[in-house]
Design a protein around this nucleic acid. Structure first.
Ligand SMILES: [Zn+2]
Length: 407
DNA sequence: CGGATTTGACCGGCGC
DNA sequence: GCGCCGGTCAAATCCG
């Protein structure tokens, strides 16, 4: 794995292609990143900046889409650009039958978001997992037009999961990786089980009590889907339980579990408020750093809000703020720990968090260094300490849809 | 031997 | 319609 970039060539700064549209696109400014996974090799040097620095850098880098993009994207969902979120929520709402086909839903809308993270190795590496807790199999690598670094493509190894991610190294910062996630995992992370000790099998089979009848929603498409030549995959039908599947899924709890657990932490009622309402004013600049050692910033991929928004999770579990370009998420290590273990992944959780509007604040915290030196063998390892995320506006809706079906 | 990578071919979308 | 490009496939290869 590794290798890659010899990179010498250097890219013009810029700009060459940028499209902003409703798909994804991250920083257009500096257009190169790089990539590849594996963390490999990097590490040297004096690069260990404070996270705030990182955030700063990251922030300066972004120059993507704007509010209009969001709107257009949103309109796609049927809204007029603003509060449609609420509407959507409603429509999906509770009354909906418990039938939903993740495959369908997921395929329908784009669900992508990118994270910028420093390369650091985390403990998961040892377990052979990526920093994000999932296990990925690389299925391709390609060099990108104006980027010196190649982009690698990974797919979740879980047979019934079609989550994908692409990784490239940031152009200028060797220690920064841009990871774009696409699709939600239909299962818990492996680390989740690991942390719960107990044989995975046992854990998998015995979902937490609080769990809704998630088992009923397991995808019936057990392992077949993957590794199979392009067959009419979409034949997806409502999901039905399939004991088989359940059994097979060692680490395969349903997505629902994940969503449920994370959402349970906040008042559902609040969820109804419009997720992306824009409120003018607010100076992003005013940032109060919380006592969060770790912070990450996220920005919309295709849609960068122009107005600062801030969302905060209720139990002060997390705090997110969105300024012109990104959403900053703050949490301490403990929280991160929880997020990545008990609740699934940051990756999955983020979209949910964003749905909770709240007070505004900005982040700028520094995090504790903590990096472990290990090197992971599988997929790139990233540090959880700081990351910026950007996702397509659409993604929240997916969650919403699913959630509402649950509640 | 099985699973993960590597890597060039293949393909579909898009802009010209 | 053509060619550029990013994303995937898949055969060959690597590795434990
Ligand atoms: Zn997965």
């Amino acid at each position: 794995m590794e290798e890659l970039q010899g990179s010498s060539a250097l890219p013009p700064p810029l700009g060459a292609d940028q499209r902003s549209s409703q798909y994804y696109y991250w920083n257009n400014n500096k257009s190169d990143f790089g990539g590849d996974s594996a963390a490999a090799a990097e590490d040297d040097g004096p690069r260990r900046r404070r996270d705030s620095m990182v955030n700063k850098l990251i922030s300066t880098v972004y120059s993507g889409p704007t509010i209009s993009d969001i709107e257009s994207a949103l309109s796609f969902t049927g809204g007029a650009g603003d509060q449609l979120a609420v509407m959507d929520t409603r429509s999906y709402s509770s009354t909906a039958p418990v039938v939903f086909s993740p495959e369908k839903v997921l395929s329908k809308m784009e669900n992508k978001y990118t994270l910028k993270m420093k390369t650091t190795t985390g403990g998961n590496a040892a377990a052979g997992l990526a920093e994000d807790g999932y296990k990925w199999r690389k299925y391709g690598q390609k060099s990108i037009k104006n980027s010196p670094n190649p982009r690698s493509y990974y797919r979740c190894t879980n047979p019934r999961c079609n989550a994908k991610k692409q990784v490239e190294r940031a152009t200028d910062e060797a220690d920064t990786l841009l990871v774009t996630y696409e699709g939600l995992h239909l299962h818990y992370t492996y680390s989740h089980f690991l942390h719960h000790q107990q044989p995975p099998a046992a854990a998998a089979v015995a979902p937490p009590p609080t769990t809704p009848p998630a088992s009923l929603l397991l995808s019936s498409s057990s392992k077949r889907p993957k590794l199979h030549p392009r067959g009419p995959p979409t034949a997806a039908s409502p999901i039905i339980v399939d004991d088989d599947a359940a059994a097979a899924a060692a680490a395969d709890l349903d997505l629902l579990l994940l969503l449920h657990s994370s959402s349970s932490r906040s008042s559902p009622a609040q969820e109804m408020s419009s997720p992306q309402q824009v409120d003018g004013g607010a100076d992003p600049a005013a940032a109060a750093s919380l006592s969060a050692p770790a912070a990450g910033s996220c920005y919309f991929d295709d849609a960068a809000g122009t107005e600062p928004l801030v969302f905060q999770q209720q139990e002060d579990y997390l705090c997110c703020s969105i300024d012109e370009h990104y959403i900053n998420i703050e949490m301490d290590e403990q929280q991160q720990q929880q997020m990545t273990t008990a609740n699934g992944l940051l990756e999955d959780v983020v979209p949910l968090l964003v749905r909770r509007p709240c007070s505004r604040s900005r982040s700028s915290s520094s995090s504790s260094p903590e990096a472990t030196a290990a090197t992971s063998s599988s997929s790139p390892s990233l540090s959880t300490s700081s990351s910026s995320v950007s996702w397509n506006p659409m993604s929240p809706y997916i969650d919403m849809a699913i959630l509402s079906n649950i509640f």
